[in-house]
Amino acid sequence: MAAETARQRLAPLAEEDTLSLGERAYRRLRESIVQGMLPAGRKISERSIATELGISAQPVREALRRLEQDGMVVTLPRRGTVVAEVGPAQLGELGRIRAALEGVACALAAERIDADSLASLAVILKRMTAGTEAGDTEALDEANEEFHALIHRATGNLFLIRSLGSLRAYDHLGRHRAIGSTPRDLPKALAEHRGIVAALRRHDPALAEARMRHHILRSLVTNGVLPPPPRPMRRP
């Protein structure tokens, strides 16, 4: 009971939002898990969550089914639905999977991306440059989300888009728990994003995949989700 009163209540969903109630409930619950408002092991009541969000139980039920598919909640005997425990080892494994899928997505995007999408990426890069120079991590996070989402859309592959959307939640969870980047890491990330866009402009799938995969793995190491790769042994 004390844990219930200590937890922040979920903000009601706004009626003017254009997404479906199920989608909005899914995103709100996923964000609450990532931010720690709904900690691991916490039991989730459909009825209480629906009351807090100001909606009926059906969209909440739909959201919980999706979260269970994502592995963020589990249904246990005699306990019901609880928030899943995602440890460092699992975050690392999921990070490697995401790096591979992001690479595949970038390769497909290099084959299919059009001039309008490339122009939009150029605009995002300008925002990233400004955010890097100002050290504005909030603006950089927003631009980074748009950057990857645009590349995902350029693939035209709905399965890949949905799979990466689910894995992004674990990326946020890892970053929320991680040590985090320092200002010195920001120019490195900007250079990597520029390199990815250059490969997309050349419509070079192999180069785009390699650069994207390197970028994701490097960011996971920077954020402490993955250990640094072993240094090559020097020959005597």
Rank of each mutant, 00 (worst) to 15 (best):
A115W: 08
A154Q: 01
A206M: 03
F147S: 01
R211N: 00
P39Y: 10
R175H: 14
E15Y: 03
A99Q: 00
P39M: 08
L125F: 10
R234Q: 13
P77C: 02
S20W: 08
L217M: 13
A11V: 15
R96A: 01
D185G: 03
R79F: 11
D116C: 06
E23G: 07
G54L: 09
G92H: 03
A2S: 14
E4C: 04
L125Q: 12
E146Q: 14
E68H: 15
V123M: 10
H172D: 09
E146V: 07
V197S: 06
L53N: 05
I97E: 07
A3R: 14
S20D: 08
S181Q: 03
G54N: 09
S181Y: 02
I44A: 07
L19P: 01
R27N: 02
A198Y: 06
L118W: 06
D114L: 12
E145G: 05
R30Q: 08
L101M: 14
R96D: 01
R27E: 10
G95F: 01
L173G: 03
R7K: 08
P229I: 11
D114S: 09
R112M: 07
L67D: 00
T155V: 11
L150C: 09
K188D: 09
I33K: 02
L64I: 15
R211S: 01
L160V: 11
K188L: 14
A109F: 04
A143T: 05
T81Q: 03
R98C: 02
M212H: 00
T137L: 15
P205Q: 04
A25D: 04
T222E: 15
N144V: 05
V197I: 13
T155I: 11
S166N: 11
P205A: 07
D116L: 15
F159D: 12
L38F: 06
S166T: 06
R78T: 09
V86E: 06
R66F: 12
R79W: 07
L140S: 00
Y26K: 09
L64G: 05
D114V: 14
Q69T: 14
G135I: 07
L91V: 11
P12L: 05
A198H: 09
A189N: 10
R234V: 14
I124K: 00
A149D: 15
L21T: 04
P232M: 06
Y26H: 14
A139V: 09
D17Y: 14
E62I: 13
F147T: 02
A84T: 06
L217H: 04
G87P: 05
N157D: 15
S219W: 05
P227M: 04
L217P: 00
P232N: 05
E85K: 10
R231S: 12
L207K: 02
R9C: 07
A40L: 08
D136K: 08
P187L: 09
M37L: 12
S117P: 00
